[in-house]
Each structure stands twice: as structure tokens, then as C-alpha cells.
Nucleic acid binder design. Structure first.
Lengths: 109, 109
DNA sequence: ATCGTACTTAACCAAGCCGTTAATTAACGG
DNA sequence: CCGTTAATTAACGGCTTGGTTAAGTACGAT
């Protein structure tokens, strides 16, 4: 589970982390600001941020005692690129056509 | 972690499961067929399939003693839709413009 | 020097994940 | 009925995750 894509998907698998990303889409924020909407401890948030950071989904900077996080959407593009390999299955019409072709092919031999 | 999106992302966070999906993109397959490329036991594969199924990423049917799996890409579309909310951050130019606008706005007050 | 604020690290715990082997279920074929 | 093949379920072990509280670090302000 050490590959990049796995890290990204695993990071996105937690609703708290997705909410943090949503918040960061509105602009940078400090840890306490990010923690505010949630009913969990600061250390917990701190670790969520670490997970997001090691997935490359955020970058962090510090000024004085504040550490502010910033959304980095590159990994999201990566993940989307991976999923797009399957986009041809999204379209119901295509799926039906595909199934039809497959059926035809199986009738041959 | 019971929400749909979390299930989907968690399912995708495993390379074996992603490989299974890739295989299924080429057509339906039985459990042993799916297991073949991997160096792990059949029960392990069986459980991966259960994870994929409860995320809605595959559907399963049986004929005689064979259970064949079929790719269901709907959840992938869902996941992509979620990520697309951030697509404006993917484009570097936009990001720079966005940062610029934000700076301007912060200069005002 | 010390206090307060912002945050991280450490130590711990319960629950979940991913793998194993062994046992079980299910269906077909002689 | 019996044996074989396909797959799942059960029981277990080790590692990870997501949370906790308590202690530590880093910086600014007084």
C-alpha cells in the first residue's frame, strides 16, 4: 500500500479529511480553524493533516506559531486520470453496446 | 465511515482491488480467473470482491458453481464527480489567477 | 524569565484490514 | 452416492487507523 495512488485514495476515504479539503478549497487555514467544525480533538486533526500531506493533497507553511494548510489538487487530478480509464463504462448506452458486442463475439466460437 | 463515498474510496485504496477492476474492464471473470495473476490465497480475493461489491463497484452473478463478477462503474462516476469540485485547482493558470484575486481581496480591508 | 497560544508527539486503546490455513457449502459429473 | 471443482465462512495473527489524554515544543508577548 505504499504506492502513490493508494495513499491518495486512502486519504480520501475519511469523511473528516474530505471535509477538511472542502474547507481548504475556500482558502488556506490554520489547524485550529480547520478543527473548529469538528467534535474531535486537536491531535486527531493534526494527524488527519499529516495523512493529507503525505498523500500530497495539502502543503503546509508556518508563520510564527501558526501552521497553515493549502489545498494541492494535483493528486486529485491523478486519481481522476486513473478513474477516467473506466469512463467508457459510465455511459449506459455504451455499456449496453459493449455487452451486445461481447455477446456477438461469444456466439462465434 | 459508513457513507457511500468513503466506501468507494476505501475500496480503491488497495492496489489488488484496483487491479481486479482493471481486469474486469476487459470483461466478466470468475473468482479463480481473477485470482490467477496474484500471489495471494483465494479467500483473500474473495474478500476483496466482497469489498468491491459493497462499494457498488462490481456486481456478481452465479451460474453453476461459478460466480462471475462484472464491473459497475457508477461509483467511479460518483467519486469523479466529487473530485471535480476541485478541478478548478488543477489548472496552474487558474490557481495563479485565484491566488492573485485572493491577494487583491486581502489588500482591501 | 515566564506565561499563553498553537500545534505536535507520545503512549495507549478499540476496531478494522489484510493476509493466512482449515473447514464448509454448493453444484456438476461419473 | 462419491469425488472434484468453485467459492465462501470461520478462526486466527499482525499491522494500521482513528480516536483519546497527557506531555512536549515553538513562538510571541508581557
Amino acid at each position: 500500500m505504499t504506492d502513490r495512488l493508494s495513499l491518495i485514495f486512502a486519504a480520501l476515504a475519511d469523511p473528516t479529511r474530505r471535509a477538511i479539503l472542502a474547507r481548504l478549497a475556500e482558502g488556506e487555514a490554520t489547524v485550529t480553524e480547520l478543527a473548529e467544525p469538528f467534535d474531535i480533538s486537536l491531535p486527531a486533526i493534526s494527524r488527519h493533516l499529516k495523512v493529507l500531506e503525505s498523500a500530497g493533497l495539502i502543503s503546509r507553511s508556518r508563520s510564527a506559531q501558526w501552521r497553515s494548510s493549502r489545498l494541492e489538487a494535483g493528486p486529485l487530478r491523478e486519481a481522476t486520470a486513473w478513474m477516467e480509464r473506466y469512463s467508457r463504462f459510465w455511459d449506459d448506452n455504451f455499456t449496453r453496446l459493449d455487452a451486445h458486442l461481447k455477446r456477438l463475439q461469444e456466439e462465434k466460437p
